[in-house]
């Protein structure tokens, strides 16, 4: 392999994408559709026009953030699958500030965004503290926290944030707390730039600072981290806080950065599963913040392009979902396997 080392993960990921697409193509073919036509529709539907591209990016925005949550966890040697719950709380926090606390324009948007991030981070502290000082396994505690967050957020949304007469959702974000819509053609807002910016900041932090180095060291080799004087508790808390900030931002992005509702559904329907989807995105993105951005665009393309595939080629929506699954599987499994193998090897 002559590819430069830095590009190797990229080529490997592309190859697995191709593998997943081939397998998915066989499935489409087995159901009596033309894989070529289906994939053309997928590509055109995702990237064919400006508005499709923008919509693809709108779907990608929250995923790159929840992927970041998982990726930072993995980099620190933790399986933080709590993005889902942290994101719920982030959405609640953003909704509260955006919808119920009037502020001047400019300040309000920033405050709502920060409120969402802070809420996500605070929620992430629970499993972090349990892990760091009580040794509770983060997989178990984050799963439990996800459930608690679900019910807590629904409770808060229905009882304290509800819009009178609109029980299906909370009060909408005030106009001063909404990210500008980039184009009337799609639901993409400027929150995309915040998401990308945050991912890049995290990247710079992990690879460019002493604390980021220690965090990655703890994930790469916990014993070597002890040797290097890294306190494991601090790494746990730090990685959970960064992950919580990202997940909280993801939740906020769907409230103050996604028309037309500009609010949180009482069922949390406009945010549910984004956190779990982020795990797959992170795996495809090789647990790298920049890889996560690219992988999120790919997932966004599947979501948006699948629509045209369904519409034009008549591929059943269930099949579109299965196709997504296969591609995710093909892409995620090798990485997941390496992760597990390294964990078991210890």
């Amino acid at each position: 392999m002559r590819t430069p080392r830095a590009l190797r993960p990229l080529t490997e990921s592309l190859a697995t994408v191709a593998l997943g697409l081939v397998a998915g193509g066989l499935l489409i073919w087995a159901f009596g559709h033309s894989p070529v036509a289906a994939y053309r529709a997928l590509a055109v539907g995702a990237f064919g026009t400006r508005e499709d591209l923008l919509e693809t990016l709108a779907f990608a925005t929250p995923l790159m953030l929840t992927a970041l949550t998982f990726a930072v966890g993995v980099r620190a040697g933790l399986f933080n699958i709590g993005a889902e719950g942290q994101m719920y709380l982030g959405a609640v926090g953003a909704t509260f500030v955006a919808g119920m606390v009037p502020m001047p324009a400019g300040v309000h948007l920033a405050a709502a965004t920060l409120a969402g991030m802070a809420a996500g981070a605070l929620w992430a502290l629970i499993p972090a503290v349990l892990k760091a000082w009580r040794g509770a396994h983060e997989v178990i505690s984050t799963i439990m926290c996800n459930w608690i967050a679900l019910h807590l957020s629904m409770y808060l949304a229905i009882n304290f944030l509800a819009e009178p007469g609109r029980a299906e959702r909370t009060v909408p974000a005030l106009p001063t707390a909404r990210y500008p819509v980039l184009s009337e053609e799609s639901t993409l807002t400027a929150v995309l730039f915040v998401a990308v910016g945050f991912a890049l900041v995290v990247y710079a932090y992990l690879w460019g600072t002493r604390a980021g180095y220690e965090l990655r060291l703890a994930g790469e080799n916990p014993d070597a981290a002890r040797y290097a004087g890294v306190r494991p508790e601090r790494v746990v808390v730090l990685s959970f806080v960064i992950g919580g900030l990202a997940a909280g931002l993801a939740g906020a992005s769907q409230v103050i950065g996604r028309p037309p509702a500009w609010s949180l559904y009482a069922t949390l329907g406009n945010v549910t599963t984004l956190g779990f989807d982020g795990i797959g995105v992170a795996l495809v993105g090789r647990n790298h913040p920049v890889g996560g951005i690219l992988a999120a665009v790919l997932f966004g393309a599947l979501a948006q392009g699948g629509r045209l595939m369904e519409y034009e080629v008549g591929v059943l929506s269930e099949l579109v979902r299965a196709l997504n699954g296969i591609i995710v599987f093909a892409m995620a499994v090798p990485e997941l396997w390496t992760l597990l193998r390294r964990r078991l090897a210890r």
Partner: peptide
């Protein structure tokens, strides 16, 4: 391999392991 080095890191990063502060 267990204590003194992070095998997945490159030479540069391993060269400051324990000296990173």
């Amino acid at each position: 391999a267990r204590f003194g080095l992070a095998l997945g890191f490159d030479l540069v990063e391993n060269s400051i392991l324990g000296r990173q502060r």
